[in-house]
């Protein structure tokens, strides 16, 4: 058998792989969004802009400073995380006591400004970023060709998501984080520096978005619009998974990436709306999201 419902198997597997790759990026981004929402009660519209920032930092480090891919992968989340600290300390922090809407508008504004700034300075055209030599080429699996870089993206994204989830659900630090979502002033009264914890959480999550941007650079070109095009899907993922459910965000992200890939194979015209169709269905049937915790 070489095809399935009229689609050649290698093509189908190729699309599945693409779906998993997209799903990996959705996972890295929606994980951060879900944590930021759960901990800070902020809907971080700037998340896509930090992803874009990560892409540009990686590109800049390589093309202007000659820093290789592996160092870039470490440096980029740090730089983007620092930018996150700036945003949280200077702006977001002042809005915690107010309605969600204020921080949503603020982060939306930050996203627009960052994107506009990068468009102004670097132009709209994409900047190429080479695949690192160690990961160029691919494996012939017999039934399909697996580019090494894509395999690496999937593995490293899943590993990071899993580790983050374990830290939050299974460690003492994660316990402080979870308790602080429930009763921040009491956690503080027990001697834990909650404001610092919130700042670092925000920095970590946008650092993850920056990391995803660096990871994406060799696959897609780096451009000012890369954040706003992915963030809409990522928001749909978080809505489908259930705001604040971290495990749910990861699973939903991968599943939606795959659904998107399959739609592209069988009915290409619908591929860009598949995620939103799922979102509408979920909102109709289970408005709190698939993985929302029962109150």
């Amino acid at each position: 058998m070489t095809d399935f419902l009229g689609v050649p198997i290698p093509v189908l597997l190729g699309q599945l792989l693409l779906g998993l790759i997209n799903g990996s990026f959705y996972a890295l981004l929606s994980l951060g969004l879900a944590i930021i929402f759960g901990m800070l009660n902020v809907i971080n519209f700037a998340h896509g802009a930090f992803y874009m920032l990560g892409g540009f930092v990686a590109w800049y480090l390589l093309s202007r400073l000659g820093l290789g891919y592996w160092w870039t992968l470490i440096a980029t989340p740090l730089v983007v995380g620092l930018a996150g600290i700036g945003v949280e300390r200077l702006l977001l922090k002042r809005l915690y006591r107010m309605d969600h809407l204020y921080s949503l508008l603020l982060t939306f504004g930050v996203a627009l400004m960052l994107e506009g700034l990068f468009r102004h300075v670097f132009g709209s055209a994409g900047k190429p970023y080479p695949v690192p030599t160690l990961l160029s080429g691919g494996l012939n699996l017999g039934f399909m060709f697996l580019p090494m870089y894509r395999a690496w993206v999937i593995v490293v994204s899943l590993a990071i998501c899993l580790i983050t989830w374990l830290v939050i659900e299974r460690t003492k630090l994660g316990g402080y984080l979870r308790a602080a979502t429930e009763n921040p002033s009491l956690v503080q009264a027990f001697g834990i520096n909650v404001p610092l914890m919130l700042t670092l959480t925000y920095a970590f999550c946008v650092g993850l978005a920056g990391f995803a941007g660096a990871l994406a650079a060799p696959l897609y070109q780096v451009s000012p619009g890369m954040g706003s095009s992915i963030i809409i899907v990522v928001f749909a993922v978080v809505v489908i998974g259930g705001m604040g459910s971290i495990g749910g965000a990861i699973v939903t992200a991968l599943a939606l990436g795959v659904i998107e890939g399959l739609t592209k194979t069988f009915y290409p015209a619908a591929s860009s709306i598949a995620v939103f169709v799922v979102m509408v269905l979920v909102i109709l049937i289970r408005p709190a999201g698939l993985f929302a915790r029962e109150a």
Partner: peptide
């Protein structure tokens, strides 16, 4: 004392 350091002075709070 910053709020998160009060506990270090041996203050236990039962709300």
């Amino acid at each position: 004392v910053p709020p998160h350091k009060v506990a270090r002075h041996g203050i236990g709070y039962v709300p």
